[in-house]
């Protein structure tokens, strides 16, 4: 084979790939930025991230750890007056056992993110692989995983977790794994499988077969990359689901977690302050608002991504 006659001095391949990747990232960002709701969602998420980052800084500078520790703190100056309404010292007041609500709120953001993202990544990785495999091979494999998904979707998810917590303590990591695995084999497989089915019938799959590609090579190189955008989209929606589940479970006190937004409301409820609804609003409103807002934010980002993933939604 003769070398090419053109004076073609190629850039190293990896460099070209980095260029291409950056170019694609820029184009996708432009598409995403077109949808205002996506940007709003992203803004809210960034706000929560800043809150999360600010907490350790505040703790080491302004906030006295003995008073402001989200789990063990107690403000002795207000003994007998807890739960105290908002004041300069406690912008969102204190809870019934004297802890600072704002500190709790900020500290919990970290675990909410960790939980939501871990669970979503796990479920989407499982969903993508299982969906692609089911679509490609069909038959018994497909049947098995689809029936499993049906079962999952019909199963009372939260009840199952309640039962599990009586067998073993549900820490944050365990909860993230459980939610991830359980929802990974659930509805998301069905959605990603149907997407994979539309990819599977494309002639480039046949072309890859004719070129000598094995089933796994085709799934890895052609099918999975082409359903990834949708996976990514569902990842956003799954973060919402995971945070919600956590909130419900810790509200009922089923989780072995030291502090979270759900536990904040749980504390208020346990000590009987939830009954007088409007009176002790700082006990439940900040945590409830944070849960709602963060879930909403991920949902909005998902909607924004939808415009990137589905060309049909794009404006000309």
């Amino acid at each position: 084979m003769t070398p090419t006659s053109s004076p073609f001095k190629p850039e190293p391949l990896w460099k070209v790939r980095v260029h291409l990747f950056l170019g694609a990232a820029r184009r996708n960002w432009a598409l995403f930025a077109e949808s205002k709701i996506g940007l709003v969602g992203l803004g809210i998420i960034v706000l929560f991230l800043l809150m999360m980052a600010a907490h350790p800084i505040l703790m080491s500078t302004v906030w006295e750890p003995r008073v402001y520790d989200p789990v063990r703190g107690f403000d002795p100056r207000l003994v007998g007056r807890h739960p105290a309404p908002p004041s300069w010292a406690h912008p969102l007041g204190t809870d019934p056992i004297g802890r600072d609500v704002l500190s709790q709120l900020m500290w919990s953001a970290r675990s909410e993110f960790a939980l939501g993202v871990t669970a979503a990544v796990i479920s989407v990785v499982i969903g993508t692989i299982v969906g692609a495999v089911c679509a490609y091979f069909g038959g018994v494999v497909d049947m098995f995983f689809m029936r499993l998904a049906d079962l999952e979707m019909l199963f009372p998810f939260i009840a199952l977790l309640m039962v599990l917590q009586s067998v073993m303590p549900l820490t944050l990591i365990r909860l993230a794994l459980l939610i991830g695995v359980l929802s990974g084999f659930g509805g998301i497989t069905i959605i990603l499988k149907s997407q994979a089915l539309t990819v599977k019938v494309k002639p480039y799959i046949e072309a890859a077969k004719v070129a000598g590609g094995s089933s796994w090579q085709i799934i890895r190189r052609h099918i999975i990359p082409n359903i990834m955008p949708l996976s990514f989209l569902y990842m956003m929606f799954n973060v919402t689901g995971a945070i919600f589940t956590e909130a419900v479970l810790s509200f009922f006190g089923f989780l072995d977690i030291r502090m979270s937004w759900g536990i904040m409301i749980n504390t208020a409820q346990e000590s009987g302050y939830l009954g007088a609804f409007g009176q002790y609003w700082w006990l439940w409103a900040p945590a409830g608002g944070a849960i709602t807002l963060l879930c909403f934010a991920f949902y909005l980002v998902g909607r924004g991504l939808d415009a990137v993933v589905n060309p049909r939604l794009r404006k000309r």
Partner: peptide
């Protein structure tokens, strides 16, 4: 093999 539809036969 060369396929019919050049719009669908390339990934």
């Amino acid at each position: 093999m060369i396929f019919q539809d050049p719009y669908e036969s390339l990934n």
